[in-house]
Design a protein around this nucleic acid. Sequence first.
DNA 1: TCTGGGGTCCTAGGACCC
DNA 2: TCTGGGGTCCTAGGACCC
Length: 423
Amino acid sequence: MKKLFALVDCNNFYVSCERLFRPELRYKPVVVLSNNDGCIIARSNEAKALGIDMAAPYFKTRELIRRHQVRVFSSNYALYGDLSHRVMTILQEMEAQVEIYSIDEAFISLPTDTPFDLAGQAALIRARVFQDVGITVSIGIGSTKTLAKIASRRAKKEPGHQGVFAFPAGAAGDHLLGQVEVGDVWGIGRRSSEKLARHGIKSAWHLKEAEPEWIRSQLTVTGARTVMELNGISCIALDQAPGNRQSILSSRSFKKPVQELADLKEAVATYVAMAAVKLRSQNLSAGALQVFIATSRFDQRLPPYAKSSMHTLARPTAHTPTLIRLALAGLGTIYRQGLGYQKAGVMLTDLSPTGCGQAHLFSPPLLESRPLMTALDTVNKRWGRNTLHYGAEGLSKPWAMRQDFKSPAYTTSWQELPLVHCR
DNA sequence: TCTGGGGTCCTAGGACCC
DNA sequence: TCTGGGGTCCTAGGACCC
């Protein structure tokens, strides 16, 4: 059966979340920063109009921000995650086939075999999300995910569409593709668009008409798929139950460069503990652990130093102390004295469902206590993160990331609920 | 002074097997 | 002169996404 795709995309999502609890900031320029207050990762329309670029380093735009009194927020993922969940729940209530694609986007698969007012249904979804959560979404409809993406951008950018736009058939569709820069096509990043431009392929229409074999040779099969999708041939299916996760990464930049091994150890132990919580929450165990450290890529004075160390476990585990021990041992092998490290991290890979691992012939069973981990997670869930934690994680954490402009956890912490004053 | 974090997929090349 | 053919697995690196 032929299907259509709709992409539901939350407008300026992080900014919209912040404004939800600060309605006086509506129509004012607002930006949200990445972790460590490093880059700008969300902008209100007013901030975009001021010429503040996506992913611009905060310190480089600070003057512009000050001059126009742009309101700045550190990222607050507890808030965004919670509001995202509310939006996605509504979509799943209204539609049978939903793929949650990212924190602020979902694809929906729509039937086309019955006479059905797609745009009308999309408008209903949009109204319901706004009514129940207070977030504005744009919805694009197309015969492939790639075309739905292009349509959603049009829905967002041109107010006349009331937030819903269906990719048109025939010549009108080609005309629209002619107006889309090739780098704005889903799956075509900076490197590929530079390469394509050198061969005269500058618009989405040029790409659609390109020779498939040549595209395959230049952009591999993923590029070839994109060309098919632009031609209306669906190659990227709706994925309602994404397969088991491949890896769990936990890493942060430091407030200021860290030199001491002792500080790095604390940071790495903290990241291991975070990753392990995520691991157990998905009932997974890790078969390998990688730890990495890096100096700043931007520091011109010294050559950058980045090293990682991989350790494979005889048997998969989700036991925090075991993982911390391995990570710290790995850290010792890659640490070099006298450098100022800007970032460290831990990646858990070879993930498998807990309890399904192959027993090992020669290693004795690991002396690890699953009930202990369960108790730890239960306490921290009930009483707040870090109620119980490992000594190796440290206490003062002088390396912790910068978060100078963080809003309260309005919806996920009793202590930070917004107050309503009545007279 | 100050430049995010968390993912996925693809390819090439080396090592190894029969 | 001339050096097989077919395969798997692993890793590193590149590119992309939000």
